[in-house]
Design a protein around this nucleic acid. Sequence first.
DNA 1: CCTATAATAAGAACGATTCTCATTATAAGG
DNA 2: CCTTATAATGAGAATCGTTCTTATTATAGG
Lengths: 146, 146
Amino acid sequence: MVSLNLDREVEQRLGDHDVRYTRGRRVVVSALAASDGPRSAAELHREIGPDLPLSSLYRSLSVLEDAGVIIPHHGARTLTRYELAEWLAGHHHHLVCVECGSVEDIEIPKKHESRVKALVQELSDGASFTPLNHALEIEGRCSKCT
Amino acid sequence: MVSLNLDREVEQRLGDHDVRYTRGRRVVVSALAASDGPRSAAELHREIGPDLPLSSLYRSLSVLEDAGVIIPHHGARTLTRYELAEWLAGHHHHLVCVECGSVEDIEIPKKHESRVKALVQELSDGASFTPLNHALEIEGRCSKCT
DNA sequence: CCTATAATAAGAACGATTCTCATTATAAGG
DNA sequence: CCTTATAATGAGAATCGTTCTTATTATAGG
Ligand SMILES: [Mn+2]
Ligand SMILES: [Mn+2]
Ligand SMILES: [Zn+2]
Ligand SMILES: [Zn+2]
């Protein structure tokens, strides 16, 4: 899913935003690239380890979001999870478990995707709304929680 | 959108959960029934007025959620908005403005809805996921923010 | 090397939400 | 009507994720 030149592309993008691609930022991007779904600051901190303090992790997330490298996902109460932006990870949707709160990426076949896209455009037109993106979130129970 | 017997149905549901349909809870349900989209505690408090203290409002929201009368929506950072559950308000989707954060309800024609539903089922099957519901969130700019 | 600027890290501050607990309202029996 | 047990309320403290402040450290150029 993730480009082989991920670091190259992120470096480029951060350069365009006049910020450096530092160690802390690299490790965050790397952790998100290895995830099969969005991750919260706490989850990333657990995964990355205490070498990257929470305050620094939060600031890295903020910088990466401003640069458009990652995007926030708000599927759970009082918790923001992040994932690589779609220009890096590809367009996809989510399976959200109502039991354990986990969120997993899911891709949908192109033909279905184009149908959804057309529907989104049609609905937006009818509401004088300018669509930029759409998210299909499927809520239910994951295989572990069944 | 909302049943004419809303109060009747909510009263019934709360009774099944052994909680009373008190004044505070009624005013919250009424405010949500009058909204064209999900509302946060702060928004409801502004709308309802200071007669219902925030702490009571929050507890009313919690009780109503436990009873399945309202459901939380997590479209905005660090903020939970609530709306009437679908068995009361009907199934629908959302237009989310990335500029001002507002969220508006939108209904989609039945034929489209059934297509989406079929797609959701198909995707879930392929991931051994048990779907309970789905949410199509259209992100973009509302008419005010264009 | 120097120096200006950017990034980091520790902890304080903040805001939304939840909890605690003393007070008040309500329903059911007597 | 009273009584009494239970439920609900409201004020404020506590909590938790997140953001801000500020002193220190790292880095890119000159
Ligand atoms: Mn994702
Ligand atoms: Mn809605
Ligand atoms: Zn699960
Ligand atoms: Zn708007």
